[in-house]
Simulated assay, not measured.
Amino acid sequence: MRLVSYRKKESGSKFRMGYITENEQIVDIHLASQKAFQAGNTTVELPYQPELFYQEGQFFIDEATKLVGKIKDSEFTFSMNDIQLGMPLGTAKKVICVGKNYADHVAEMKSDIPEFPVLFAKFDNAIIGPEDEIHFSSATEKLDYEVELTIVIGKEASHVHEENALDYVAGYTIGNDTSARDLQKRTPQWLQGKSLDHTTPIGPWIVTKNEILDPGNLTIASYVNNEKRQYSNTKHLIFSVPYLVSFISNLITLKPGDIIMTGTPDGVGFAMNPPGYVKDKDKIKLVIEGIGVMENVVKKVL
């Protein structure tokens, strides 16, 4: 199932929870569950707010799954052409990022293979939706792109074992760890180059884990103005998805709706000769097998 947050175009209304049908229609999860509840076909009425939906994690996802294929009412089914997609989770309470997690990327950055996962954080100010513009702040002159498989946590995870780690995953989405390389490189800590306002799109939806049985074998790619920049496979991750969930949960309790960005393969603009940083009005397209495509435009701002 593909879970989205959506609103009608140019409505200015709040984003609502939905899922995408096989014929590319969006079903409003709250309205569909409300009707099912009133008819006695379910015991729970699902919230419309993405933030509240993901607080219950896997339980609400399972309840939403029961609605799939049963909804015929056009009153709460919408065409994709009429809606705007938002960041699937609404807001990001915890965004944990992994650096240096593909060997070829480590090499192009002239670094060393890490013994343990390299972790850093992003904040919600950086997170934007899959159709939003990426802001190119005047604070940087070297804005770069990074396509990343992104994990969404579905159940509270603390001290979980690697062999059971996928039980705590709700699904997967695409993230662009857009990076201000000049800010990132000027200090040993990367945070200032990784959390500029309005720079990290997530989306376009969350694909539930039942549809991606092996997150360790997915083609992953990025394009700038239709020029291929990155092309790899998640089988080349140094630290796998199960390992990362287990490793992080032994340091930090993961909650439903938390995000883990798993790192980027080689081909970033920083490593090109000459460097291939993005510019105002550039179009960045990210593609991950089994999830889909996310496209954003870069916009120069003060």
Rank of each mutant, 00 (worst) to 15 (best):
N101G: 10
E289L: 00
D182P: 12
N226W: 00
W190H: 12
F247I: 11
N176G: 04
T199I: 11
L218H: 12
S79N: 14
S138N: 14
L119H: 09
N164Y: 13
L85D: 02
M17D: 12
K281W: 03
T200G: 04
F239A: 07
D282L: 04
N217K: 14
Y102P: 09
I291Q: 01
V301S: 04
F120V: 08
T219I: 14
V98Y: 02
K94Y: 04
G86T: 02
E115T: 13
R7D: 03
T42F: 13
T178R: 02
V169K: 03
I61D: 05
M87E: 09
L166H: 11
P256F: 08
Y172S: 04
R7H: 12
L85I: 04
S222P: 00
Q34R: 15
A221N: 09
G257K: 09
F37H: 06
D177A: 07
G216P: 05
A121K: 07
Y168I: 06
V27P: 00
N81P: 01
N226P: 00
D132C: 02
K110R: 14
N41M: 15
L67P: 00
V106L: 06
T199A: 13
D197R: 07
Y145E: 11
I202K: 07
V106P: 05
Y6A: 05
K72M: 12
V169E: 01
L254G: 08
L89G: 02
G257Y: 08
V293T: 15
V241L: 08
I20Y: 08
K72V: 12
L143D: 03
L119R: 09
L143H: 02
T43P: 00
T264M: 03
E211R: 11
K194Q: 08
H161Q: 15
M17W: 08
N176S: 06
M17K: 13
K70H: 13
D62K: 14
D62G: 14
K93F: 04
Y102L: 03
R7I: 03
C97I: 09
Y19H: 09
G276S: 11
E51I: 13
E146K: 01
L191W: 10
I238E: 10
K285D: 01
G18T: 05
